[in-house]
Nucleic acid binder design. Structure first.
Lengths: 243, 243
DNA sequence: CACTCTATCTCGGCT
DNA sequence: AGCCGAGGTAGAGTG
């Protein structure tokens, strides 16, 4: 199985590396190349990266990642949907990843290849994440009184002219209530978002109807708190986890 | 050089893999592990991932990434600053990455290890990106008439009680002007942001002073356009690239 | 395809 | 350390 599932070659020549890459790309394998390389990107923006020892990852869905030994983010990349090509240029291995819409290309030129690994990374499995905004929503739908005594959810993702309100409902006086959910501490952006929904509802609903806006999140920053007050919006502290 | 810079082992036993990992972590190397693994994460959220063939990357700055053969983003990860540990559990290689603040841990359990590569990825070099928001700002500071004839920039990143305005200046009638820059097509969020700055300036400056808000971006969405009109804000179409 | 919003966002800068 | 905003954000969901 390993013989079919993985091929590795230490310190290959450029043409040996090219051979591995071409066959790996053809066979839809996950490919890693360790080596000293330069990187050029041009597309939505443009960037240039001088020679250094890096890890390049090619995925069968068209993703390419160039990682240094620091940082979680790749130093250069292309998203899924690109076409990988490899060739020799002046005796050096060159990997080119290209896509249209937008027109972009990433060029990785290896001055030295230290290792190539071609791997069969297939075998799907889904990751299930808990503690998301959806969990916070479900928690409130289960127990609306966590927002406020008398609160009654009427709809989730209710469409308005400004976008969809997370939870739309009524309070004990039958006022309309827009609830915006955030799974973590929020800044002014979330308050503006809620404000847009409240204004849209005031405009969409028949005139005179009172619309309250309630932000539900674990906590808010100072500026967000001030903005809430100025906008006449409310805040309820609640976390996605029952803790 | 390659002997020192890179060590690779195909289809190692769990204890051989553990040995490579421990020495690689100790030596601050970039480490990749190919193999069938399960992943458990618990921290800001929680997730669980069943067994599958994946690529795990350990960086000397404490980053850990678990990649499948699709997608640009890792399926599980931990940011820089974590502590990597490796051990055997029931004959299986286990990699644990942990940090405090917030308290999080990622557990990768290998049911089979296909390949371990330990690499010296050092040798820094900076990446220079062009076509960013800073380039758009510089373009306007060079030629303020691109925003409007008579526009005079007075400050960049001018602080207000709502945050920093990208470019603050005056128009030909000596009105205050707040310019918000976006390098790409924008939605309602950017309009709300600009509106917050304009309101803050109206409040901060002496009463009666007219404050105009101008959004500069390549284009806006429909909802953003409507919101601009409702808020009495303006839009100028401009791209970071002179093209 | 475009638009909107979430994210274990990450990252850098500043207070 | 927290707050704030940018990002070549990516990715999901919807019309």
């Amino acid at each position: 199985m390993t013989g079919q599932g993985l091929q590795a070659h230490s310190a290959p020549t450029a043409s040996e590396a090219l051979d591995l890459l071409e066959r790996g790309i053809e066979a839809d394998r996950l490919i890693t190349v360790f080596g000293q390389c330069r990187v050029e990107y041009e597309g939505r923006a443009a960037s240039s990266l001088e020679a250094g020892n890096r890890l390049t990852v090619l995925k069968p869905d068209g993703t390419i990642l160039v990682h240094t030994d620091t940082g979680q983010q790749p130093v250069n990349w292309q998203p899924p949907g690109c076409t990988h090509e490899s060739r020799l240029e002046g005796g050096q291995l060159v990997v080119e990843s290209h896509r249209s819409n937008p027109d972009e290309q990433l060029l990785v030129t290896f001055e030295r290849v230290d290792q190539v690994v071609v791997y069969d990374g297939s075998g799907e499995s889904d990751v299930t994440v808990m503690g998301t905004e959806a969990d916070l929503r479900d928690r409130i739908l289960d127990r609306p009184e966590l927002v406020e005594a008398g609160f009654e959810p009427r709809a989730t993702e209710r469409e308005t002219s400004a976008g969809a309100v997370d939870i739309y409902g009524t309070d004990s006086d039958d006022n309309a209530v827009a609830v915006e959910l955030k799974r973590r501490r929020v800044g002014p952006d979330a308050v503006s978002q809620l404000n847009r929904y409240v204004e849209a509802l005031e405009s969409d609903l028949h005139a005179g109807r009172t619309v309250r806006g309630i932000l539900v999140a674990p906590s808010v920053t100072d500026r967000a708190h001030n903005l809430l007050e100025r906008r006449g919006l409310e805040f309820v502290s609640l976390s996605p986890d029952p803790e």
